[in-house]
Amino acid sequence: MRKITKILTALFATFIVFGFVNKASASELTQEQQEAYYAEYVSIIEETNSKYNKNLQLGPIEGFSVDSWKTPEEFKNIVTDMATQEWVAVEEKPGIGLFASTSGTKSVSKYLSGQTVTITVNGSFNTILSNGRQIFSPNINSLTSYASKGTWTQRSYTSSLIDGGRTYNFDIGGGYVYNDVYDATNISVSFYCSSTGVVQ
C-alpha cells in the first residue's frame, strides 16, 4: 500500500512540475529560447505575408513584453487572424441626443485568436438647418479613434458627405499593433444625422 502511495505521489508531483513548465514556457523564456521563438516568429510573418499578400511587420525582439511571448502555434493563430480578419462595423443602438447634437460614436471590430478587438471612432461635427431638417455642415470639428486591445494609431482620413448632407462617410488610415505585430490598415465608418440633429 505504501509503495502504491509513493508511486501516486511521485506521479502527482511530476504532473504539477510539467504543468508549471508548460504554463511558464511562453512567458518565462531564457534569452536563448526567446531568440529561437523570435526566429520562428520571423518565419511565420514572412509566410503569412506571402500567403495573404500582406505587409505585417514584427517589432524588435528588445521591445517584446512578457505578455508578447507566445508559443509559435499561438503566435501563428494571431498573425493569421490579423492577415485574414476584416474590420466590420459594429451595430450601434440609436442614442438619445439633444437638438442639433454634434457628436457621435461608431465602432468596428474583428476577432484575433478568439479575442474581440474593437476600434472606436469619436466624431464631433456641426449641423445646420436645411429645408426644415438638420444636416451635417461640411466642417468637421474632430475625428479621433482608439482600440480596446493592442495599439491603434490614427494617421489620416478621407471623408465624403452624401445623402444631401445626412451621411458622413470616413475612410481612416492608421497602424494597428497587436502582440508586437504591426499592420498598416484602413477602417471605414459612417455617421448619420437625424432630422433633429442627433448624430448616430
Rank of each mutant, 00 (worst) to 15 (best):
M1V: 12
I4H: 06
I4N: 08
T5R: 13
T9R: 10
T9A: 15
A10C: 09
A10M: 11
A10E: 06
L11K: 07
A13Q: 04
T14C: 15
T14E: 00
I16L: 12
F20W: 08
V21Y: 09
N22D: 11
K23D: 13
A26F: 03
A26L: 04
S27T: 13
S27R: 13
E28D: 00
E32P: 03
Y37P: 04
Y38L: 11
A39H: 01
V42Y: 00
I44K: 02
E46K: 14
T48C: 10
K51W: 00
Y52F: 07
N53E: 15
L58F: 02
L58E: 11
G59L: 04
I61A: 10
I61G: 07
I61Y: 01
E62W: 00
E62A: 15
G63F: 04
E73G: 09
E74K: 15
I78Y: 03
V79Q: 09
V79C: 11
T80D: 08
M82Q: 07
A83H: 06
Q85L: 04
V88W: 04
E91H: 04
G97M: 06
L98H: 02
F99S: 15
F99H: 08
A100Y: 02
A100C: 07
G104K: 04
S107L: 02
L112K: 00
L112V: 11
L112R: 07
L112E: 10
S113L: 07
G114K: 09
G114Y: 01
V117T: 08
V121S: 04
N126T: 10
N126S: 13
N126H: 06
I128P: 01
G132E: 04
F136R: 06
P138V: 01
P138L: 05
N139Q: 12
I140E: 09
S142N: 14
L143V: 15
Y146S: 15
A147H: 01
A147Y: 02
K149Y: 04
K149V: 09
G150E: 05
T151V: 14
T151Y: 05
T153K: 13
R155H: 04
S156M: 10
Y157P: 03
S159Q: 13
S160C: 05
S160R: 12
L161M: 09
D163W: 02
G164D: 08
N169M: 11
F170M: 11
D171K: 14
I172G: 13
I172T: 10
G173L: 02
V177R: 09
V177S: 13
N179T: 12
V181R: 09
V181K: 07
A184S: 14
S188V: 05
S188L: 07
S190V: 02
S190H: 03
C193H: 04
S195R: 07
S195D: 14
G197M: 03
V199K: 03
V199I: 15
Q200S: 15
